[in-house]
Amino acid sequence: MTNLTNTISKKNKHFSMNVFILVLAIIGAVLPLIWDNPYTMQILILIFLYAAAAGAWNIIGGYAGQVSLGHVAFFGLGAYTTALLYNFFGISPWIGMILGGILAAVVAGLISYPCFRLRGPFFTLATLAFAEVLRLLSIWARPLTGGQVGVTILFNPGFKNFQFFGKTPYYYIALILMFLVLIVSIWIERSKFGYYLTALKEDHDASEALGINTAKYKLYAIAISGFLTGLCGAFYTQLLLFIEPLSVFTSHLSNQFAMIAVVGGAGTAVGPILGSVIITPLNELLRGALGGDFQGLNFVIFGAILILVVTFMPNGLVGFFKDMKAKINHRSESK
């Protein structure tokens, strides 16, 4: 009997989540048809992009609890791979995107492996340092990357070249990217892999004793996370058609990816989307409105938000809503 109710409640939970995703997808798909304003479109594209990148971060940082502060490294690898393969060899950015993602995944694995054999803060420190190393290398390797000047992607619009005149195609691609990350996250949540990641986040020794090869699963997680982050970087290249070390290897982006996930709710599939819906427009607003006069104000505010969230809402907005719901349910039950 209990077995039955359990499976039913689980099915219900899955069902409502599936419905939620479907509704979100439909809204996302029809929105440009009714509200086709370039500025709004631009903001929405960024919301999706950041939600995707934060969601990718969330796979290793949230589910597996291994905090990376250098995810921009994988973003930048995706971005540069796509740009350089297209400019030097004329390889379609669609293929460049996949190759960039794969490169990011492999590099992520190589950097993380020594850290995952150990416990402690090594992974966080290694990612932080590695991102800085890539930034410096991208400046240094001038013949390849153009150094500080950056790379301008040769403009030749068309689907094959992943370049478009209007914003709408970018909008749909960003939307798909976000949903890809969301679906991967949900798959993780509902599979053995997700259970294992949560377990190793909670207790390393107990996980090992229960047969979890913790290093291996963390490695899978960082590879998936790196791949998806690489895709985001590639998309960014095609969106702006110009990249430079300052824009795709900046520690600001690493912080932003992590912060969006944490504010929304790390270790949940919708957390990064929720976080991006709040943080990304706020960021654009603060930069746009106050820009020149108060350079850095956005990050002062975000830093403060980050401190407040982890201190008072350690499970982010999703956790906060869950607690609220539990309280309301509890109250109605006691009545």
């Binding site: 940082g61 905090v67 944490v262 002062v300 830093g303 403060a304 401190i307 982890v310 201190t311 350690p314």
Partner: peptide, 28 residues
Amino acid sequence: QPIQESPATIKIFSTLGLGLVLSNLALM
């Protein structure tokens, strides 16, 4: 102190947040 017993990740973000505030305050 309020998060002394919290998981390591919480402490990482708290000090990271402080770092962001300080460096960007200086920039401002």
